[in-house]
Design a binder for these strands. Sequence first.
DNA 1: GTTAGCAATCGAGATATAAGAGTGCTAAAC
DNA 2: GTTTAGCACTCTTATATCTCGATTGCTAAC
Lengths: 337, 337
Amino acid sequence: MLTNRQELILKLIVEEYIKTAEPVGSRTLSKLVDFSPATIRNEMADLEDLEYLEKTHTSSGRIPSDKGYHYYIEKILNDSSAYQKGFNVIDELFENTDVKREEAIKQAMNLLSQLTNYTTVALGPAAYGSRVKKIELVPLHTDVCLLLVITNMGHVESKQIIIPENTSLDEMKRVIEIFNDVLFDCPISKVSEKLRYEINTTRVKEMMVYNQTIIDTFLDAFTKFTQSKYYLSGQSNMLYQPEFNNIERLRELLSFFEKNDIFQLVENTENQGVTIRIGKENELVAMRDCTVITVPYQMNDEESGTIAIVGPTRMEYKRVIPLIKYLAAHMSKLYKE
Amino acid sequence: MLTNRQELILKLIVEEYIKTAEPVGSRTLSKLVDFSPATIRNEMADLEDLEYLEKTHTSSGRIPSDKGYHYYIEKILNDSSAYQKGFNVIDELFENTDVKREEAIKQAMNLLSQLTNYTTVALGPAAYGSRVKKIELVPLHTDVCLLLVITNMGHVESKQIIIPENTSLDEMKRVIEIFNDVLFDCPISKVSEKLRYEINTTRVKEMMVYNQTIIDTFLDAFTKFTQSKYYLSGQSNMLYQPEFNNIERLRELLSFFEKNDIFQLVENTENQGVTIRIGKENELVAMRDCTVITVPYQMNDEESGTIAIVGPTRMEYKRVIPLIKYLAAHMSKLYKE
DNA sequence: GTTAGCAATCGAGATATAAGAGTGCTAAAC
DNA sequence: GTTTAGCACTCTTATATCTCGATTGCTAAC
């Protein structure tokens, strides 16, 4: 357990380092607080022994360790001190309820990355829970149709299909009718299971006569729903962080964002509420000196997702944590109403 | 007009510089060709007077100027020397005709950026020419419907609408019927015009009774078609080009890609066939030491777009130009069949 | 027209130096 | 016992200086 003065000094070091990105020395600190540099040096040595602080070299000032940041976030930053800056901008964004769900998420992520100057990621909402509402067939040309699958959440996926040689449009329509009967109200995640189960019933067998691959075409359209989509914003913000001021590191970082590995960022965060992973706690090598904060949001009973923010470990926690929480809460609330 | 020997030396300098990214000196060159360094120096001085070459400082080797690259591309690289490397990979990609149009374009761009190590952009296909095939209304809940607009090209846009207070579902269906009558086979680009024109007919007036904003909702769904979408691939490839080996330049470049200014890359290239803009010819400051090559593709009578590749002026033209042309031709051909 | 030779130029890298910031420790002051 | 002043020591950063090598332009010889 830290003494009050140790806590104070840790707090000041963290905040000073966050501000300047330079190791903090005893002289600098003595200007912010009423102890002599020597006293502060003693405390710093203790905090270093306790692994809350680190040195970059023998005669440098101190920087917070991963553990130090954690202490700062959990013990020193209590929610009561929550910053409210930027909240009004978020409120404004959500006043316009007219935009489409997906668009709203994108806008929210753009806003968050602009407000914080870090990189933001939105995952989902995964639509595992939504159900088949209607399947439609729209003829485009003589032999090409558009297959539409619509869910109860208003999502639509489409796929063009070619009508098999010796099949009439009426027959195709009959097939769609059967599919509608069989799949209506079926959760998207259960579609393939259901089809496999029903494959032995007469009705489904009937359409197999027309085309073996028609079921594959269907499954294809359905899997699109379950693919969780992600949206990335403010990648290039990383370029402005002094800790990434070298090409090697930038290559690693930006290549990571460009690959589709971003899902890994939020791995194992489901059902955990807000997670804050600092530095090496991220198992991803590319994130070794970054902090990743993830917050889940719940759009409705059937759809949920995660938003995340990525920045250097030297992140403005005081401002960022309330912001991302507020945003996630807002996203959840909006669609609950 | 250049002499044969001048052309040879220009060619060798361009190719050597493309390979090494280092200014090319007379000694290096004398190993590739059977003249003494002094002779080559004389020729280089002449080529510099003619502005095909440049020096980075008084006693450095030569690098090609923008003009030098142009001469190289247009006069020295004739089509007969076209490289065929990578063509087979493109053929392979297009063998799988099963994928959706949009997905195919994405894959093609990914492939191109992988093959070349430059950044690629696909614009479009803009759907200005496609026509309204069908408008549908799918009830989701008691008071929410999904409005679907389907074009003859098989594109779908959807928008959720709330049924106005004192309106029944049947009435809404009637409205959709009217819209279908009025807008069927109407080119997407003409929809708003048509609606404005028809607004005075009795039938359209009839639905205005229900809700003033319903037309706006419609127009909203339509404008989505006309928004040309773009896809960017291989941004981080730029990080590996030695000319962008400094943070300042990278910031500028990647911020440019992240902004939605990418449309500007292909501005004024429509109907011009293949365009090659080298260095300062690009009016965009961020592209001052880049080459942007754009090639149009024609998906069908009603849809066309542009693909582009962005790299340093020191680009592997010999390999890249045939590749991008071949790819565009392939994209055009595939959908013509 | 071509080439060898040579002084001059410039960049890149190595080395040296100085300045400045910070530490840890000891001993004195509170 | 706690706090502080003083001081030698360490390490980084910036700057200046130097050398080395690559390359050029020019002149004169081939």
